[in-house]
């Protein structure tokens, strides 16, 4: 029983030390990101070319991304309109 009490005390110490250390370590990492990485990002932004290329890509993918159903709906509407128009004439 005494042995068990001792084990409990050891486990408690381990828990306290462990949690304090985990928080301290990851807390330091937050400081590292906020103090070092963010400043580096401002000083050395990604090259503009890449950005514009990416944007261009996004635009084309958006254009490509128009679903075929919508395209079909629009073209059928246009053809219907034309047919009606032609009939009236």
């Amino acid at each position: 029983m005494e042995n068990l009490t001792q084990l409990f005390i050891d486990a408690g110490k381990l828990m306290l030390a462990g949690m304090v250390f985990v928080f301290a370590f990851l807390g330091l990492l937050i400081i590292f990101i906020n103090q070092v990485l963010v400043k580096l990002a401002i000083k050395f932004p990604d090259p503009v070319n890449q950005n514009s290329r990416k944007k261009a890509k996004v635009k084309t993918s958006e254009q490509d991304g128009v679903s075929p159903q919508i395209v079909a709906a629009i073209s059928s509407a246009v053809s219907q309109y034309r047919q009606k128009h032609n009939n009236k004439e």
Binding site: L14, G18, M19, L26, I30, N34
Partner: peptide, 15 residues
């Protein structure tokens, strides 16, 4: 970066 604190808190499960 403050989400690191969430990752730290979840380690309480271990201890």
């Amino acid at each position: 970066p403050k989400t690191l604190l969430l990752g730290a808190a979840a380690q309480f499960g271990i201890f």
